[in-house]
Nucleic acid binder design. Structure first.
Length: 308
DNA sequence: AGGCAGGTGGCCA
DNA sequence: TGGCCACCTGCC
């Protein structure tokens, strides 16, 4: 018999299934899929493919899935070098009861450290789309334009050079809609500037953010997502509709613009504001999930008029 | 059966 | 700066 391919995933704390799902498959990354029967996750990034699961005690385990992926590769992706427990403790949860509630609800939540260029591609796809649809776009991009990780295996995402060479019509076949123009434009911009992405990734947060805004289809929100999920910049505070709603309801920011909310977030939550954002995001989405899970006949949840 | 969806860019006061 | 709208199209 083959030896057990599963190994302990050191560097991660014990997790609940819900928190593991939140980390891998709820909007930071879009290339993980959960096996409905076993609950195991299968994911792809760069030229890596792995499976991840929890043992009976909630301890994460992993197994390679046909690629030469080692523990160090996975550790880098999961940012095990960052102490998220300490970063969480440094958030102002002691004086912020809503944040404290969010932190308590998702113990062990963390940020991924995905490949920079792939994260940019993913969030260029994300404009006014739900997670399921973003995942479909990326699967199509990989299937049509990416190389297989091994013969018969899953495909990697296409790199930016490949995307620059692809006709926009080919991109439109990947369900991208108007995002195809943004991706094509960004691909051309990058093709004309070798090293631009790597330089941008290495820049301090404010400079990196400003540079990303040069790309077509990249505004403040997408730039912050790329830096938070693809560059480990915990200062980044993406403001999407969920965060806008969260801050409106729980922090009394009625009528604030996204830019104002972003400024509030960075100053109120501090240098790890992006981690706070992830807790708030997870909470806020959890509040609306009952829409499809609600028992038949029950009234849909009235939008809670949260008074701070 | 349609409205809506992890935004962005352009245009107008 | 602030508000408004077009942009694509497949899900719930």
């Amino acid at each position: 018999m083959a030896t057990d391919p599963w190994s302990p995933l050191s560097g991660l704390p014990q997790l609940t299934p819900a928190v593991l799902a939140e980390i891998l498959d709820r909007g930071q990354a879009f290339r993980w899929n959960q096996d409905p029967a076993t609950g195991d996750f299968a994911g792809v990034w760069a030229r890596h493919a792995v499976r991840v699961r929890l043992d009976a005690g909630g301890r994460p385990e992993w197994a390679p899935a046909g690629t030469a992926t080692g523990p160090a590769d996975l550790a880098a992706y999961l940012a095990t070098g960052t102490d998220f427990a300490a970063a969480t403790d440094a958030l102002p949860w002691r004086s912020d009861t809503h944040l404290a509630r969010c932190v308590a609800a998702f113990p062990g939540l963390r940020l991924l450290r995905q490949p920079f260029g792939e994260t940019l591609l993913a969030f260029l796809c994300s404009a006014t789309k739900q997670i399921v649809q973003i995942k479909q776009m990326l699967e199509l991009l990989a299937a049509r334009l990416g190389r297989p990780l091994y013969p018969g295996g899953p495909h990697a995402l296409p790199d930016w050079t490949t995307l620059a060479a692809a006709p926009e019509a080919e991109l439109r076949r990947c369900l991208l809609g108007f995002r195809a123009r943004h991706i094509a434009g960004t691909a051309r911009y990058l093709a004309a500037r070798p090293g631009w992405l790597e330089e941008t990734e290495a820049l301090p947060y404010p400079a990196a953010h400003a540079r990303l805004l040069e790309l077509p289809g990249v505004g403040a929100k997408v730039a912050d997502c790329v830096l938070l999920f693809g560059a480990g910049r915990l200062e980044a505070f993406p403001v999407d509709t969920w965060i806008l709603q969260a801050l409106t309801r729980h922090y009394g920011l009625e009528g604030w613009s996204p830019a104002q909310v972003a400024h509030f977030g960075r100053t109120h939550f501090g240098p790890h504001a992006g981690l706070a954002q992830q807790y708030l995001f997870a909470w806020e989405r959890g509040q609306r999930r009952p829409l499809s899970a609600a028992p038949a006949g029950s009234a849909p949840p009235r939008s809670p008029r949260g008074r701070r």
